[in-house]
């Protein structure tokens, strides 16, 4: 957002588009800033999001998929929303080419609590498309300047099919590294799939990460969350040590427009990251 006015987006340019999945409805957009000052001001942490803004179409809040350790650009992985009536902004974005300019407002929201995570073992659990800010966090922690600040890192990531896994190159690279334990699973493999098959909750049960000095960071579709949380409770993770990211319809992204509240909290400013302990104090209904 512009310095003087949080409602005015800053201009960015698409420098790279990566088609992530074989269904062609999830793409990663890499943006570079048109103004150097904007780039300097765009300081963010993993877990934050921004409003991608296309004039004439509107704005859409999207989690930042790159890590602050990636300098010079910022990445967003965007799913084309809506099956019957496509989302205005996301489908317009998907129709853009490299070189196109759009607007950006952010960084917005809180982040994964880096301070809190420091010196702890981190269990990252992701499902499907909701892996984007987890990727940001993982890359942040894996960066050579940061790796030492964190304990063991375990990643459990699942998608419905091999073709629907995001960031396939990075997944492969993590598997080769020694300082991260990465378990990739798919609900149903294909001929070429050599990896694990099975649903994320079952895999979590299988892997059984220790709760000792550990924080679980979980993002995924509601159904995955629903069945994964009991696994972590059973493993004796406390509510404080299970973190997740919420989604609500947002407009302003800066806590003013009044629509993304869960109880007295605004998802856009008090969130999107909450621990289960935070959520416990909030109504379960909206």
């Amino acid at each position: 957002m512009s310095a003087s006015n949080p409602y005015i987006p800053i201009p960015v340019q698409i420098s790279k588009i990566i088609n992530e999945v074989d269904t062609n409805d999830i793409k990663t957009f890499r943006f570079t800033f048109l103004n150097k000052e904007d780039e300097k001001k765009f300081k963010y942490l993993p877990g934050q999001f921004a409003e991608l803004s296309i004039y004439g179409k509107g704005e859409s809040p999207i989690g930042i998929a790159s890590s602050p350790t990636n300098s010079g650009y910022v990445e967003f992985t965007v799913q084309r929303a809506g099956t019957i009536v496509p989302g205005l902004v996301t489908s317009a974005l998907h129709d853009l080419d490299e070189g196109a300019q759009i607007g950006l407002r952010g960084p917005l929201g809180n982040s994964w609590p880096i301070e809190y995570l420091t010196k702890k073992n981190i269990v990252v659990v992701g499902g499907g498309f909701a892996f984007t800010t987890l990727r940001s966090l993982i890359n942040y922690m894996l960066h050579k300047d940061n790796r030492a600040r964190f304990g063991e890192i375990t990643v459990i990531y699942g998608a419905r099919t091999p073709g629907l896994l995001l960031y396939k190159d990075e997944l492969a690279a993590w598997e080769k590294r020694k300082d991260i334990k990465s378990i990739i699973t798919v609900d149903k493999g294909d001929e070429s799939w050599r990896g694990r098959e099975g649903f994320v909750p079952a895999v979590c049960k299988d892997v059984a990460p220790s709760p000792k000095n550990a924080v679980a960071v979980i993002c995924g579709p509601p159904i995955m969350i629903k069945f994964t949380l009991p696994v972590f409770f059973e493993l004796s993770f406390s509510q404080e040590n299970i973190l997740t990211s919420l989604e609500m319809r947002m407009k302003c992204g800066i806590g003013k427009c009044g629509r993304c509240n869960v109880g007295s909290k605004y998802v856009c400013t008090d969130g999107p990251i909450f621990s289960l302990a935070d959520l416990d104090g909030l109504p379960r209904d909206f």
Binding site: Y55, G58, E59, K251, C252, C257, G258
Partner: peptide, 10 residues
């Protein structure tokens, strides 16, 4: 009451 929507009118 201060809720608002942001919309583009082209």
């Amino acid at each position: 009451c201060y809720c608002f929507d942001i919309c583009d009118d082209t």
